[in-house]
C-alpha cells in the first residue's frame, strides 16, 4: 500500500480538469503561406475551455474529454502583388494624308503591391483522449494529462467563413487601387481562384493541430522535497521526500476514478 493514496471520481475530475483547461496559458502560432499572387502572414492565438470528462479505465486507459472548445483569433496580413494586372497599351501608328505618320504614345500601367489586414476569430469543438503522464523533471514531480493521438478538427465551416472575410477585405482594398476599375472583376477572379477553402483548411489545420497535439493538462505538481509543516517561530520547515508518484485510472471499486499513489521518505 502506498504511503499516500488520493483519488477523484468523474464529478471531481470534471471540476478540476475544466478549471485547469481554462487556466492554460494562451498558445500562439505563426506561419507564412503563399497562394498565387499573394502571400499571407498568420499570427494566431488560441485557448481552450469546457469539456466533459469521462474516465475510461484499462484496457482503453484514457480520460475522454468531450466538447473541448478551442477558441482562436487570427491576425492575417495579406500581401497582394497586383503585378499580374500590369499592361501596356501598344503604340498605334497611322499615316495621315498631308500630315504623315502619326503614332499614339505607348501607355503602360503598373499596379502596386498592397497589404490587406484581416482579423478572424472562431471556435472549434473537438473530443480528445488524454492519459496521465508522470514525470520527474529536476526536482519537481508533474502529472499531466497528455493527448493520445491527434483528434480530428472540423475546420470546414471556419475555413469557409474565413474565405468570406478575406474576399470582402480584398475587394474593399482593390477598390482603392487607382485605375483598377476596368480590371476589378479580373483581379478578384484571379485572387479568389488562388484562395480556396481547401487552401485555408490546410493552413488552419497546420496551425491548430500542433496546438491541440501539444495539449498538456496539469493534474498534479509538487517539488520532490515536499513541505509537511511550514516554518513557525524558531522551528524550521519540515520536509519529506516524494520518492515515487504513480497515476492510474481505476474502476476496481465499481466507480471510475483517477488515482495518485505517492510514496514518501523522511
Amino acid at each position: 500500500m502506498p504511503d499516500i493514496l488520493t483519488a477523484v471520481d468523474e464529478t471531481a475530475a470534471n471540476v478540476i480538469m475544466s478549471k485547469e483547461i481554462s487556466s492554460l496559458a494562451p498558445l500562439a502560432a505563426s506561419r507564412n503561406s503563399t497562394f498565387g499572387p499573394f502571400s499571407i502572414e498568420w499570427e494566431l492565438s488560441a485557448s481552450f475551455s469546457q469539456g466533459t470528462i469521462d474516465i475510461i479505465p484499462p484496457p482503453a486507459d484514457v480520460i475522454r474529454i468531450a466538447g473541448v472548445r478551442l477558441s482562436y483569433h487570427a491576425e492575417l496580413k495579406l500581401t497582394l502583388d497586383l503585378g499580374f494586372l500590369d499592361f501596356c497599351l501598344p503604340q498605334v501608328c497611322v499615316t495621315l494624308p498631308f500630315i504623315g505618320r502619326v503614332c499614339t504614345p505607348r501607355v503602360c500601367l503598373s499596379f502596386p503591391t498592397i497589404e490587406v489586414p484581416v482579423s478572424h476569430s472562431s471556435t472549434v469543438d473537438f473530443t480528445a483522449d488524454v492519459r496521465p503522464s508522470v514525470t520527474l523533471a529536476g526536482d519537481e514531480w508533474k502529472v499531466e494529462a497528455v493527448i493520445v493521438g491527434v483528434p480530428q478538427l472540423v475546420l470546414g465551416p471556419a475555413a469557409t467563413a474565413l474565405l468570406g472575410v478575406i474576399g470582402g477585405a480584398v475587394t474593399a482594398a482593390l477598390l482603392l487601387v487607382p485605375a483598377i476599375g476596368p480590371l476589378l472583376a479580373l483581379a478578384s477572379a484571379v485572387i479568389l481562384a488562388s484562395l480556396t477553402v481547401a487552401n485555408l483548411l490546410g493552413v488552419l489545420g497546420a496551425l491548430l493541430n500542433p496546438l491541440v497535439a501539444g495539449l498538456r493538462i496539469p493534474l498534479y505538481k509538487s517539488p520532490r522535497l515536499f513541505e509537511i509543516l511550514p516554518a513557525s517561530g524558531q522551528d524550521s520547515a519540515v520536509f519529506v521526500r516524494l520518492d515515487s508518484v504513480v497515476a492510474t485510472l481505476d474502476d476496481s471499486g465499481g466507480e471510475d476514478e483517477l488515482v495518485l499513489a505517492i510514496d514518501i521518505s523522511s
Binding site: 500500500m1 502506498p2 504511503d3 499516500i4 488520493t6 471520481d9 471531481a12 471540476v15 465499481g254 476514478e257
Partner: peptide, 14 residues
Amino acid sequence: MSLTEAENIFAGLN
C-alpha cells in the same frame, strides 16, 4: 467499494 465512496475526492495516509 471505490476509494471516493459516496464523496468525490479521497485522501488516505497510510
